[in-house]
């Protein structure tokens, strides 16, 4: 009996296994990010936002919704995808993945697919939570779904690379919390970069997160800090870089195989 050309059983087994872990730790995986984001709405949207004027004609509480969803998508996407592969390295169970008749891309499809599913579930939950606090409108729902999906895939691929790269738990949390979160805060999650002085606005344009948040916000309210085409192009650049990174990892066996 020959091995199948596409090992669908393996992809499905990994996907189901990862999703079962997600469901088993639902309080930590789902409730915590939803609660944290709700607190942002309460503090920035209701308490502080009620004293602020609108931005680009959008109430402040509603203005920050896309940025908060993106923040959650970035950090949770990175964490979920990196944890899935890192824990296999940490416990040593990765031997089974490496010795199984599964291709690199099937493995990525399973792990990243599960992480993307988790991230999108979270994004939708946060969106639903936001609708309880602020009046929402989504002008371009298909584009919103596209931005949500592409960003989730990109950051989950990034998370997979992070999980392979990390040698310890500390390194695992280094990128999400020391790099991505500050870049998101400084990337227009809570304000329009047009509110910045010209010099700092120019500097901020070097922050890649700006393009992701701006595009996503455009899908809600039709206003953007940068051209939507630039946002899409930036997402595709990230996606290609991450795909190339994953390809290189499996070609060289970097931190997976001796």
């Amino acid at each position: 009996m020959s091995a199948p050309i596409f090992n669908s059983h393996a992809v499905w087994a990994i996907y189901r296994f990862e999703m079962a872990r997600f469901m088993r730790t639902a309080v930590q995986s789902v409730l915590t990010p939803v609660l944290t984001t709700s607190l942002y709405f309460v503090v920035f949207g209701s308490a502080i936002g009620s004293r602020m004027t609108t931005i680009d004609g959008v109430a402040y509480g509603a203005f920050i919704v896309p940025g908060l969803i993106m923040l959650s998508l970035f950090t949770e996407g990175l964490s979920n995808a990196s944890f899935g592969i890192y824990v296999q390295k940490f416990t040593g169970t990765i031997y089974e993945l490496l010795s199984a008749p599964i291709s690199a891309w099937e493995m990525v499809l399973a792990f990243v697919g599960a992480a993307v599913t988790k991230s999108i579930i979270l994004g939708v939950l946060i969106l639903a939570t936001a609708s309880l606090f602020v009046p929402l409108q989504i002008l371009h729902p298909l584009w919103m779904a596209a931005f949500l999906g592409l960003t989730a895939i990109t950051f989950c691929l990034f998370g997979f690379i992070l999980g392979v790269w990390a040698k310890g738990w500390e390194q695992l949390s280094l990128i999400p919390f020391l790099i991505v979160t500050p870049l998101t805060f400084l990337g227009g999650a809570f304000y329009s970069i047009d509110m910045l002085p010209p010099f700092w606005r120019t500097v901020t344009l070097f922050n890649p997160i700006v393009y992701l948040i701006s595009g996503f916000r455009w899908s809600f309210y039709g206003t953007a800090d940068v051209a939507v085409g630039n946002s899409l192009a930036m997402i595709f650049v990230f996606l290609c870089v991450c795909l190339a990174g994953v390809g290189w990892i499996f070609k060289t066996g970097y931190r997976l195989k001796n």
Binding site: P4, H9, A10, A13, I14, R24, G92, T93, P101, I102
Partner: peptide
């Protein structure tokens, strides 16, 4: 393998099912 490397938080049934799937069955 030589080392006792297992998914500590999983059940016996879940981990054995995963293994079978990984090997394309």
């Amino acid at each position: 393998p030589q080392e006792l490397t297992t998914d500590a938080f999983e059940t016996v049934w879940a981990t054995v099912k995963l293994s079978r799937g990984l090997f394309g069955r």
